[in-house]
Design a protein around this nucleic acid. Structure first.
Length: 890
RNA sequence: GCGGGGAUGCCGGAGUGGUCAAACGGGUUGGGUUUAGGCCCCAAUGGCUUAGUGCCUGCGCAGGUUCGAAUCCUGUUCCCCGCACCA
């Protein structure tokens, strides 16, 4: 038995010594594949492994097709996770330390090495037994390690700075406001990992309508709405009579909002609290409404919640169920009306939106449908509100009473009206969390608006248009995902690209900020083409001119080389290297990265490089489930690469990661099935391995011809599948299908020599997937060079007749079995076969085999013969490819 | 809510207008081999029918297009992924 583990080590050493996977420009066609470099903060499991293994197999396949394949690897350490982990370890966070020692198998004595960011990063990359680098090596990935880098290497950072300089020159960077979740106690934005409660809770945007109090120049009642498109339907304003509101100064204006709103507002704009005012003092007063001539009264209702938005609601009884019911309830309450001296019988809903299902007075209709007649039916009111919103947002159009917006669809009117109100300074934006969010420090979070946030303007029309062109020329694998890419490209807006903390490159236009992690990993593939050369240069001297020369062929080589202090030849070599390897052949990453990393890559390549130097394809990989469950290292349901490799060997791990579903599909790793699958594959390999010595002794029986032809047809199918990266299909051909062929061949009487001839060819085919076994078979067959310096057997036409003849024997056998079953003849004594004349030869040839299989004496006639023994007149049933059969019981 | 993908036998999954629905893997049942077990090999695995045949049913649900639909269209239910600063 072959020891798969020893095999792996042996050949990995061989490859390293012989630099098999170090790729330099030469005469061959280049194939450059890049997999998104990993964030090395934990142990590597089969889910991570899949992405890299598939990419590796694709690279190796191209190499074996005679191309020059390149797969470099680096480490993405930008962002906050390293810092957070280091902090936690320094603070002796027991849970975190336990995670590192138990789940990631880091020896306790090494924990001390994880207490600085640099130490953490270095340890995780180079020392961690269960880390990615070790995992890549265990799996036998063909990585060109000379090009290794991390995203905090000085040289790399210079490249990022160059990239941002170009983006800036193109006008693709802009500064602006941006709402973020914020912890007031830490005085810092919070991400999901900073929270103890409220992960994934988003930010809602309210439009604040500034309604000037009649008789006052600068005092505004500030009502909040999620539906700015309904302003033409306003009939009044609601305040909660039991509440005391706050007065805040906003510039020269005084705004009236709830007290809790005043506090939140301070994080979003420049305001100061300036006293308070009782709701009772507002009720009955009139406000002036932007865009309208008439004035509206302030009315009391118990429903406005002072903890939501401004605590003041603008009333649109035509389209808001709450407002409709509140108005109805107030009308039916003469006591309350008398108390404030109000007369409101003239106030009625104004039709402003034609909705589909709910007609022109959606709130009324909805309240009837949901049986609502009181503000106390809160749940139903929420339901009705949601239903009305859904219907009117998608199907509604504004009525003729909506001024210049009349006839517009709600979808469009909403944004237009909001924008107009904001430009006229009649409204402001206010952000509120969708639910409760609590920071790890225990403080309740709120929304803050940053005003020095930098953005990459993916909304830029020209850039978007050009990027869409690039996308059109990019091969998307699988093709079904193209629509998703197209939608993402349409939907991409300006993306905040700076952060206040974390590892990474400083943002050139504001050195106090760090470039956000996803934004420093967009075109690094280009950098890899020169990474090993540029390491030799002094990082201080890596000015933008250097990169302009390498990537854009700008400037004077001699003077740039002199400035850099390297030979002109070396600098030229970098440029040639980029020219040779680019465009990027395939960018590979997980499917869920399509909305960011994969799309950004296309945008940035478009911004930086000319059409012919962008990227040719994307490979989008599906996720891995374990026994139909999401893997989670903290919950312990993971399979770590080290464990599974030492259990079944790297080659089998690789095989099972690729043979069960296509790369882009979701994969379910089932330990039970894998254990069972192993034995067949191992047996196949043993058979091939054993036959190697018998190589050379040829035999030409019909089954031998069949086996050879069959193998060739497997090769053809394999190539056909691999052309579309249907890795699973290709593997099924040369593994499971091939096993089946081999079984039949053995049943039929196999020649070891024939198998021995095929084995080295098979080794080449399997090499991309099971490289160690392949190399073992290949070199055991007497070859001295690596199998990866070979070229795969080609497609060739197969002799269909040979295949058909064997198929006929198979069918015959099945027919006999069926007849045996039906006639209950368990042990037939004689088997007569009547063929049509031209087919007698092939059945006669198989007679010995049939005798062995059926256990009866076999007599083959051709039906036209004179001396046919045919007591039951079966012979006349003989057809082409289907001889007649007569069984005689024993 | 928005965008993308999906629903096929006991299970995982092939199959994208007809010629074969269920390849391939697994499970179950029966048989062979074996001292026995395992490995291995063979067969069966929706229903009826038959000396190796033929038919019916069937691809989430309901309609439609077509001579013909798992496949195309419409509606519907359910499931999965992503939704932005998070790597």
């Amino acid at each position: 038995m072959l020891d798969h583990r020893k095999l792996a080590e042996k050949w990995q050493d061989f490859w390293k010594k012989n630099k098999v996977f170090e790729s330099d420009p030469d005469k061959r066609k280049p194939f450059y594949i890049q997999v998104a470099y990993p964030y090395p903060s934990g142990a590597m499991h089969i889910g991570h492994a899949r992405t890299y293994t598939v990419a590796d197999a694709v690279a190796k396949y191209h190499r074996l097709k005679g191309e020059n394949a390149l797969m470099p690897m680096g480490w993405h350490v930008s962002g906050t996770p390293v810092i957070a982990a280091v902090e936690a370890i320094k603070n002796k966070d027991k849970q975190k330390i336990k995670m590192f020692t138990e789940n990631f198998h880091i020896p306790k004595k090494d924990i001390i090495k994880l207490t600085t960011p640099k130490g953490f990063v270095n340890y995780m990359i180079d020392e961690a037994e269960y880390g990615y680098k070790k995992g890549f090596q265990l799996l036998g990935l063909g990585i060109d390690w000379r090009r290794e880098l991390t995203t905090i290497d000085k040289h790399y950072q210079k490249f990022i700075e160059w990239q941002y300089k170009i983006l800036d020159e193109k006008g693709y960077l802009k500064k602006g406001k941006y709402p973020v979740r914020f912890c007031p106690s830490d005085n810092h934005p919070v991400g999901d990992h900073d929270l103890s409660k409220g992960e994934g809770i988003g930010i809602k945007e309210y439009t604040l309508l500034k309604l000037r109090l009649k008789g006052e120049e600068k005092v505004f009642i500030v009502a909040a709405t999620l539906r700015p498109e309904t302003i033409y339907g306003q009939t009044n304003v609601w305040v909660n009579p039991s509440v005391t509101y706050a007065k805040v100064a906003c510039g020269s204006e005084i705004w009236i909002v709830s007290k809790s709103c005043a506090k939140k507002l301070a994080y979003q704009m420049d305001v100061q609290e300036k006293g308070e005012i009782k709701a009772k003092d507002l009720i009955g007063k009139m406000v002036c409404v932007p865009g309208r001539k008439d004035e509206l009264p302030i009315l009391p209702s118990p429903f406005p919640d002072q903890n939501i938005a401004t605590g003041i609601v603008t009333s649109v009884p035509s389209d808001a169920p709450y407002d409709y019911i509140a108005l109805k309830q107030l009308k039916d309450n003469p006591k309350e009306l008398k108390l404030y001296g109000l007369s409101i019988e003239k106030i009625n809903p104004i039709s402003i939106i034609h909705t589909g299902r709910f007609g022109d007075f959606a709130a009324k209709k909805a309240c009837e449908e949901y049986n609502i007649d009181s503000l106390s039916q809160k749940e139903k009111l929420e339901e009705a509100t949601a239903a009305v919103y859904k219907v009117s947002f998608h199907t509604g159009t504004l009525t003729k009473d909506c001024g210049k917006y009349a006839g517009l669809q709600v979808v469009k009117a909403k944004e237009a009206m909001k924008k107009d109100l904001l430009t006229k300074n009649e409204a402001a934006l206010f952000y509120e969390l969708e639910g409760e969010v609590v920071c790890r420090c225990g403080t309740t979070c709120l929304v803050s608006v940053l005003d020095d946030q930098w953005f990459i303007t993916y909304s830029n029309k020209e850039w978007k248009k050009e990027s869409k062109k690039t996308l059109k020329d990019t091969k998307i694998i699988p093709g079904t995902l193209r629509t998703q890419y197209e939608n993402v490209f349409d939907w991409l807006e300006d993306k905040p690209c700076t952060r206040t903390k974390g590892l990474g490159t400083s943002f050139p236009k504001d050195k106090t900020k760090i470039i956000e992690p996803l934004s420093d990993s967009t075109v690094y593939m280009a950098y890899f083409t020169i990474a090993h050369f540029i390491k030799k240069a002094d990082d201080d001297k890596l000015t933008p001119q250097v990169f302009d020369y390498i990537f854009k062929n700008k400037g004077n080589v001699a003077s740039i080389a002199k400035h850099l202090g390297i030979k002109e030849l070396e600098l030229k070599r970098m440029q040639e290297s980029f020219q040779y390897w680019y465009p990027l052949g395939l960018n590979a990453s997980a499917v869920e990265l399509i909305p960011n990393h994969m799309s950004y890559s296309i945008f940035h390549h478009t911004a930086l490089f000319p059409k012919e130097k962008r990227q040719q394809g994307t490979l989008n990989l599906g996720m891995v489930l374990l026994e139909n469950q999401k893997m989670s290292s903290s919950k312990g349901n993971v399979i770590l690469i080290n464990d599974i490799c030492s259990e079944i060997g790297a080659d089998l791990v690789r095989l099972f990661l690729m043979i069960s579903v296509e790369p882009w599909e979701e994969m379910d790793w089932r330990q039970g099935e894998i254990e069972k699958g192993q034995k067949n594959v191992k047996a196949l390999i043993e058979t091939l391995y054993d036959s190697l010595g018998a190589k050379g002794s040829k035999r030409e029986a019909s089954q031998d011809k069949w086996f050879n032809e069959r193998f060739q047809s497997r090769i053809n199918n394999y190539h056909r599948a691999m052309e579309n990266l249907e890795v699973r299909k290709a593997l099924q051909e040369i593994v499971f299908e091939f096993i089946k062929d081999l079984r039949w061949y053995e049943r039929r009487g196999a020649s070891k020599g024939v198998i021995g001839e095929i084995a080295p060819e098979w080794a080449k085919l399997i090499a991309p997937f099971m490289p160690h076994i392949a190399e073992e078979l290949w070199q055991k067959a007497g070859n001295k060079k690596s199998v990866f310096e070979e070229v795969l057997p080609n497609k060739k036409s197969v002799d269909q007749n040979v295949l058909d003849e064997e198929e006929a024997v198979r069918t015959l056998l099945a027919d006999i079995a069926q007849i045996k079953e039906l006639t209950k003849i368990e042990r037939p004594k004689e088997l007569y076969i009547y063929t049509i004349p031209p087919e007698k030869r092939k059945y006669a040839e198989a007679a010995l085999f049939l005798e062995k299989e059926v256990g009866a004496k076999v007599i083959v006639f051709d039906m036209a013969q004179k001396d046919v023994y045919d007591p039951q007149s079966k012979a006349k049933k003989a057809k082409k490819g289907r001889p007649a059969i007569f069984l005689v019981s024993g």
